[in-house]
Design a protein around this nucleic acid. Structure first.
Lengths: 248, 248
DNA sequence: GACTGTATTTGATCGAGATCAAATGTCGAA
DNA sequence: TTCGACATTTGATCTCGATCAAATACAGTC
């Protein structure tokens, strides 16, 4: 399982407004300068499409702020989210000019973009960069595989609980908060986007959220703010092993 | 979408019994020699477990022959396959000593193993190697995302048709066969393993196979040998776009 | 060739989640 | 404050795939 807190090797880009997981953790200052030379920032509003599947994309990017989603759509409109990008996550594929998925800003998003072609050149000449990208991609693959278990075998209730604990965990690691028993966070997704994430309908998402509230596993302040009074109780609902699949 | 026929940059290892996709396509002979120095072959019989989730694994490997699966199991026994490794696919994660999934030989399997620690050293000093692994991992991530759409949104019939077309396609690319309208191949998985792949029960798999046979989409010779009289007709059952998601 | 264990098929029934429909909450603009 | 556009919740019903159960096919092995 990816260990996000370990993977977070943060550093400050020269003119980056906030600290984020740098694309390359071990770059020397001259490599950082080269990255700086090909980078720029772009902001997207919640709901805005960053790229459609099939579009040419002339940059790759690191998410600085906000949440973006990768979604696949079938001809008849059925939709499945296949990627959820939080701050420090990487967007785009080097050596491929067209995107394979719809990329959408779930909340307001700030991207740190790198022009794709020179970025590819940098990968060629900077060994650490491809090693770093390999690590990040392997983490993403692990996450995708956990997601596959969720989609293929979990009940609706387990799916919701798993989603909440994933968001809570990643939110906590971003905020570097200690693992208190109580946890509070904002949902970055609508019920519909949650349904697309979980392979459910939005009605089922809503019903199961209500059920978890009724059973005291979560509290809702407004529609989007979640309080988890007892993290253990939430974990028990996910269907996952108690140790979270971490082997010693 | 990963283009396997393009990705197949085959070369012959010094003493490799068959040609397989080399781990590094652009290695010069001295790097190949270093790979040769840390490699050995292992054979597993169908049904044998190659590694249990949590086991330490002191090698990474390339599948030379046969089919292996990665599977996750929940405490109550629900199982989901999360990876299917065919010849030329890579097994194991550099820089991680324990496996995260149960690895099982679906058929008799021959692995070309590389001792993990020296292999990691080789990654450090051979830029092309990590670039090659990055490409392969990104292909695998794309495959995982297509798989997620299947698990989350497709009907049982679409899942079966998709699985058959995936196996047919990969089988054809391995055999380098021209894209004839008719196609024949052997299923490398039992009905139960197919169910674990597709997030279904084995009864549903069996029923849908029978339905596809009844409707003339496939023919069965024995339990495992499949004939697809009209590839287009099978594709129409998958729910995927006609162009297979390839953007021009 | 009969026997045994396993893989697969087929049948009958059930239930979780989808679907269709309507009510309620919410927030910004006029 | 009221209106309108959404997001969300709740209700009633239906359906696909799961579950439980049994029959059949098949590959070894004695």
């Amino acid at each position: 399982m990816p260990n996000r807190s370990l993977a977070l090797s943060e550093m400050t880009c020269a003119d980056c407004p906030i600290r984020h997981r740098a694309v390359c953790a071990r770059c020397e200052s001259d490599e950082l300068e080269k990255l700086d030379a090909i980078k720029y920032y772009r902001r997207f509003e919640a709901g805005q499409t960053i790229a459609w599947a099939g579009d040419k994309m002339d940059f790759v990017a690191s998410v600085v702020e906000g949440v973006a989603s990768l979604t696949q759509t079938m001809e008849d409109g059925r939709r499945q989210m296949v990627g959820l990008l939080l701050p420090s996550d990487f967007l785009g594929r080097p050596n491929r000019e067209s995107v394979s998925y719809d990329v959408t800003a779930a909340t307001d998003v700030m991207l740190c973009c790198f022009r794709r072609v020179p970025f590819q050149g940098l990968i060629e000449e900077t060994p650490h960069l491809s090693q770093r990208l390999l690590e990040m991609t392997l983490d993403e693959l692990d996450a995708a595989r956990e997601w596959m278990l969720l989609l293929g075998r979990k009940t609706a209730r387990e799916k919701i609980a798993s989603f909440l604990s994933i968001i809570a965990r990643r939110d906590a690691s971003l905020k570097n908060s200690k693992n208190a028993t109580e946890l509070a966070f904002d949902l970055p997704l609508t019920r519909e986007a949650m349904a697309d994430y979980l392979g459910l309908t939005l009605e089922t998402v809503s019903r199961q959220m209500s059920a978890l509230k009724r059973d005291g596993v979560i509290e809702l302040k407004g529609k989007r703010h979640i309080i988890v009074p007892d993290v253990e109780a939430l974990m028990d609902e996910t269907g996952d092993d108690a140790d979270g699949g971490v082997y010693i």
